[in-house]
Amino acid sequence: MTILIGYVPTPAGEAALTAGLAEAGRSGDEVVILNSPRRGSTVDPSLVGDTDALLARARDAGVAATIDQTDHGPDVVDTFEALVERSGARLVVLGLRRRSPVGKLVMGSDAQRLLLELSVPILAVKPGP
């Protein structure tokens, strides 16, 4: 089976990667790391991360991993759901960051939509203090 990890090089993304690799190591699953910009967006290369380092971390954890950096459309839920279907993922791992209630109201919450709408179980993790 496969575990899908949503990753950007932030504390929340690092927490998701760590938790996802640990779960894959326990269960013997492969990992797909989703690390891609929205289609048509201008993305700072530092937001994508060092793919060689990501693969090395997976290797060090004893986990087979691939990275998906395909540009995706404007709807993050559609992007995750399509990759869940393509990869046969049994679990999605997401990092969550703290946002104020006003920030959620004004900006919306992709994480909340993923939690409510994805068809597979989700492991949501927060970065440590």
Rank of each mutant, 00 (worst) to 15 (best):
A65K: 00
A15T: 13
R99H: 12
L17D: 02
V31Q: 03
D71F: 12
K104R: 15
I122Q: 07
V31L: 05
S100M: 09
V48D: 05
V76P: 04
L115F: 04
P37S: 01
V32K: 07
P101R: 12
T51Y: 10
G28V: 12
V77Q: 08
L118V: 15
V120Q: 04
Q112I: 15
A82P: 02
I5S: 00
D60T: 14
Q69C: 07
S41I: 09
A124F: 06
S87A: 06
R86W: 00
D44I: 07
S27M: 08
L94V: 09
T18G: 10
L94M: 07
S100R: 03
R38M: 12
A61C: 05
A12K: 01
P121A: 14
D60R: 08
T10E: 05
R99P: 04
V93R: 00
D68I: 03
K104G: 13
I122C: 09
G62A: 08
V32Q: 04
G28K: 12
S119Q: 09
E14N: 14
V48F: 07
G6H: 02
R97L: 13
P121R: 10
G103H: 09
A65D: 00
D52G: 15
G25V: 10
S100H: 04
Q69A: 14
G128K: 10
V32F: 03
R97W: 11
L114P: 01
E81M: 02
D78I: 09
L21V: 05
M1G: 15
A22F: 06
S87Y: 04
R99S: 11
M107W: 10
E81P: 08
D71Q: 09
P74A: 11
D71V: 08
E81C: 02
K104P: 06
G62I: 04
A22G: 06
V76E: 14
L17K: 01
R98H: 07
P9G: 00
T10P: 03
A82S: 10
V84M: 02
S36R: 09
V43D: 03
V120R: 07
P9N: 00
A53Q: 06
G88I: 05
S36M: 14
L105G: 10
R97K: 14
I122H: 10
K104H: 15
V93M: 00
V92W: 01
L4G: 01
L105E: 08
D52A: 14
D75K: 11
A89G: 01
I122Y: 06
E117P: 01
S100N: 07
V76F: 06
T42G: 12
Q69S: 11
G62R: 08
T70V: 04
S87I: 03
T10S: 05
T18M: 12
E81L: 00
P11G: 11
L47G: 07
T2I: 03
S46Q: 14
V32R: 11
D60A: 15
I33V: 11
